[in-house]
């Protein structure tokens, strides 16, 4: 009887510890958000959005960083989305089960774990110097495209795998070719899932800093980027720049820019989660 009580007590204590550990993430997130809000809410004003960066904290803004992020992410989406979906279709619908396919799959798994700064070194040599794109938006977008491809491919494959086999069989039995089955039956059903993956991988790209620093994106841009070959900066780099300065005024700017970045990312994530839930409810075979 005594033993039984002790076992129960130990169980309770452990549960308490485990619960505490689980809430650490929540606590950290709360503290982070509070700190950013405390420091950054004050700088959010119209001029913060429309001003270029400046030596004077009270005049500085995120205009060029915001435009740069918009440019880079649009181009990244343009390159990575078709490639990622195509690769996923190949691996899920076409690839024979052989050594080459296993190699490609292993390779994608590995790439997902390569530090992002290594992609920066690749982008520097391949795009900035090899293809002579200089420190341009295009070079940045190509680098980020390679970076998010593994995530995009994995997410798209999961969406394709969730399409019931019976649908493909129905198509084949009517004499459809493999591409006709994929194009007309599989893709439309997998689309919401793929879209979720696209949003999540693009939100990853939006937050990336290290590879863009490595390819030489600038920290001070006082003009609007007008084309893919222009020099650029992005929000995370602007934040990095401001955090690295000793003056409190720049730290407030950093916090303000983080608020903007987090709002963008959280709304993208929320949209992705909404899509995923909607999708789960939709088709019941």
């Amino acid at each position: 009887m005594e033993l039984r009580k002790r076992r129960e007590l130990i169980g309770r204590v452990f549960e308490g510890i485990a619960l505490t550990a689980t809430t650490i993430g929540l606590v950290a997130l709360t503290l982070l958000l509070l700190d950013v809000a405390r420091r950054g809410l004050g700088v959010l004003s119209w001029s913060f959005f429309v001003n270029y960066p400046s030596r004077f904290p009270e005049q500085a803004g995120i205009r060029s960083a915001l435009l740069g992020t918009l440019w880079v992410i649009s181009l990244t989406a343009l390159f990575s989305v078709p490639l990622g979906i195509a690769a996923a279709i190949y691996l899920e619908e076409y690839a024979p089960r052989n050594r080459l396919t296993r190699l490609i799959e292993l390779n994608i798994n590995n790439l997902a774990g390569v530090p992002s700064i290594i992609y920066g070194l690749l982008g520097l040599e391949l795009f900035v110097r090899g293809m002579r794109l200089e420190r341009s938006i295009l070079a940045g977008a190509l680098t980020l495209s390679l970076l998010i491809l593994p995530i995009l491919i994995t997410a798209s494959r999961e969406a394709l795998r969730a399409v019931p086999m019976s649908l493909r069989e129905a198509g084949f039995a009517l004499g459809a070719t493999r591409w006709q089955v994929v194009r007309h039956q599989v893709l439309p059903v997998a689309f919401p899932g793929i879209l979720t993956g696209i949003i999540l991988s693009l939100s990853r790209a939006i937050g990336e800093t290290a590879p863009l620093i490595t390819i030489g994106a600038l920290t001070f841009i006082a003009f609007d980027p007008r084309g893919p070959l222009d020099k650029f900066t992005v929000l995370p780099i602007q934040i990095f720049n401001w955090v690295s300065r000793p003056q409190e005024g720049f730290h407030r700017l950093a916090a303000g820019a983080i608020l903007v970045l987090l709002v963008v990312l959280l709304s993208m994530n929320a949209f992705a989660i909404y899509l995923r839930n909607r999708l789960q409810r939709r088709y019941q075979w």
Binding site: T22, G25, L26, R39, G207, T209, I239, A254, I258, I273
Partner: peptide, 24 residues
């Protein structure tokens, strides 16, 4: 409740964590 919070935590850019480390 917890799972989405962990997902959000995983989705925060590292530069933001850098800010948090240095300034908080």
């Amino acid at each position: 409740i917890i799972k989405p919070i962990l997902e959000i935590l995983a989705g925060i850019p590292t530069v933001v964590y850098g800010y948090f480390a240095l300034l908080f």
